[in-house]
Design a protein around this nucleic acid. Structure first.
Lengths: 249, 249
DNA sequence: CCAAAAGTGTTGAAGTTACACCCATGC
DNA sequence: GCATGGGTGTAACTTCAACACTTTTGG
C-alpha cells in the first residue's frame, strides 16, 4: 500500500505547490526578465515561467527543471526568494480560464515558491516547453502587469537582487566569460537603478580581487578599446561563501 | 459545484502545505527558541511549532494562527524565511510515527513555509494547543537536534536574524518597553554571537535616534543604576521601512 | 570598603565621495 | 579631425576600531 502511494507520487504533479522563476538577463544596457506568453488568453498575456512540482522532487530541483525546460540551460545561478500564496491570487478572469486549460485541478489552492535566477543572455536558446508556447526577454522596467501575483514576485525578486549584489559578487552570472569593467559598471547601475561614479566603482571592484585582467583587448569598437577581464574563481568562491560587508554603493 | 469546493476549502487543512515558526525570545542573557514537546515519541522530542494551513488562509495568517494558538500573543513581529521541502524530510522513524498520530494523510508530501518571530519573553504565557502538549524555551546554542528538517530551519532563521539586525532595528521586539542600553548591547552580542565594544555600540545606537532616554533609572541593583530607555516609534518606523546601510558590527 | 556594572573621549586608520581631463580607436 | 567611450588621482570628509578609568549603588 505504501509503495503504491510512493509510485503514484513519483508520477504526479502536486496540485498545491508550484515554483515560479524570475529569470534575469543583461543585454549590456539594461536588465531583462524572461516571461512566457500565454497564447489564447484575453487580458494579461505575460507570466513568469513556472509549474507544479512533482511529489518526489526537491523544490530546487523543480525550479531547475522549469529553467532547463524553458531555456535548455543547466547549472544556472538560482536562489529561492520565498513562498507566495494569497488564497485570492486567482482574481483575474484570464488567470482562471488559463488554469482551466492547463491544470487538472484548476480550482485547487496553490502556493508557489519563487526563485530568481541569473543567466547569460547569449547562452539562452528560446524554445517551447510544456508550460509555454513562447518566451521573450522584456526589460524589467517596462513591465507593468503580469499574471496572478507574478508582478509582486518580480518586485520582490528585484529588491532581493539589489540586496544580494551589495554583499555577494553574483553579478558575474549575468556576463559572458570575458567582459569589460564598463559592462560590469553598467550592470551594477541597472540593478541598483542609480548612477555610480565610474572611478569609485572601478577602485572598489578591483580591491575585491575578483577580477583578473586578460592580455586581450576589445577590437572593432570606434573608440579606445577596453581591457578585457574575467573573474577570479578562487576569490569569487571565497566571497560568495562569506559575503562581504561594506560594499555599500 | 464550485461553491461546494470553496466551502470545503474553508474547513479543511491542506495536506501538502504547512507553516513552522522559529520563535525567538531573549532572557537578558542569551537567545532562546520556543520548541514544543512531542509527547510519547521515542527519539527526538523537540520540534518547532507549526501546522498545516487551511485552504482559505494566507500563509502569514497561518503563521499568526500557530503563534497565537501556542502563545496567546497577537501582533507579533513575524517574517517569512522561505520554503523548505526536501521530499525526504521524514527520514527519522520518530517523525514518521508522530505524523501517523496527528495527520489524516501522514504520507503526503509536505512543503513547509518557515517564519521567524520575535517576542518579549515576559509576555509569553505557555499553554497547550492543538499541536503541542507543552512548550518550552531552550537556549538556541544548546539545541543539537530537532524533528524533521527543523534544525536546518533554525540555522537559517539564526542567520537571517543576524543579517536583519544589521540593517533594521528589529531587536526591540525582544525587549520590554523600558530597557537599558546594556541589555540592548547584550542582545546584539547574543544575536551576532560575538563581543561588541561597549562604547562603540552605545555611540552607534544613539546616533540612529531610535532610543529615547527616560527620566527613570533602575533601582534595587547592587551597582550603579542604569538609565532606562524606550525606543522612539517615529524614527523606528522610518528605519524599519527604509532600513539603513552601514550598521556593520 | 568592596564588588559589580554604568558610563564616558580620543586618536589613528580606513573608507567614502566628489570631481575633470587626456587617450586610443574607427570612420 | 572628430566623435565615442576608456581610463586615471587627489583632497576633504566621515566612519570605524581600539583602548582604560571614574562613578554609583547594595551589601
Amino acid at each position: 500500500m505504501r509503495k503504491e502511494i510512493k509510485k503514484n507520487a513519483a508520477l504526479e504533479l502536486n496540485p498545491n505547490v508550484s515554483v515560479d522563476c524570475v529569470i534575469f538577463g543583461f543585454d549590456f544596457d539594461k536588465l531583462n526578465v524572461l516571461v512566457i506568453n500565454r497564447d489564447g488568453v484575453d487580458g494579461v498575456q505575460w507570466a513568469l515561467p513556472g509549474n507544479l512540482i512533482y511529489d518526489d522532487e526537491h523544490l530546487d530541483q523543480a525550479a531547475n527543471r522549469v529553467l532547463a525546460e524553458l531555456t535548455g540551460l543547466q547549472h544556472i545561478y538560482l536562489e529561492q526568494i520565498g513562498a507566495f500564496g494569497d488564497p485570492n491570487r486567482i482574481s483575474k478572469e484570464s488567470d482562471r480560464s488559463w488554469l482551466q486549460s492547463i491544470r487538472t485541478q484548476p480550482e485547487a489552492r496553490v502556493i508557489t515558491v519563487a526563485y530568481f535566477s541569473l543567466v547569460k543572455m547569449e547562452d539562452y536558446q528560446p524554445q517551447a516547453s510544456s508550460f509555454a508556447k513562447s518566451a521573450e526577454w522584456i526589460p524589467v522596467n517596462e513591465i507593468r502587469e503580469l499574471a496572478f501575483d507574478h508582478f509582486d514576485i518580480l518586485q520582490t525578486a528585484k529588491s532581493r537582487l539589489k540586496q544580494m549584489i551589495k554583499i555577494r559578487p553574483i553579478g558575474f552570472n549575468l556576463l559572458p566569460e570575458k567582459f569589460t569593467l564598463s559592462q560590469l559598471h553598467k550592470l551594477y547601475e541597472s540593478i541598483l537603478d542609480k548612477p555610480l561614479d565610474k572611478r569609485n566603482f572601478r577602485r572598489k571592484i578591483q580591491k575585491l580581487n575578483i577580477v583578473m585582467s586578460l592580455e586581450e583587448k576589445q577590437s572593432g569598437v570606434p573608440h579606445k578599446p577596453s581591457q578585457l577581464f574575467m573573474f577570479d574563481k578562487e576569490h569569487y568562491l571565497l566571497l560568495t561563501q562569506n559575503g562581504f560587508d561594506n560594499f555599500g554603493f
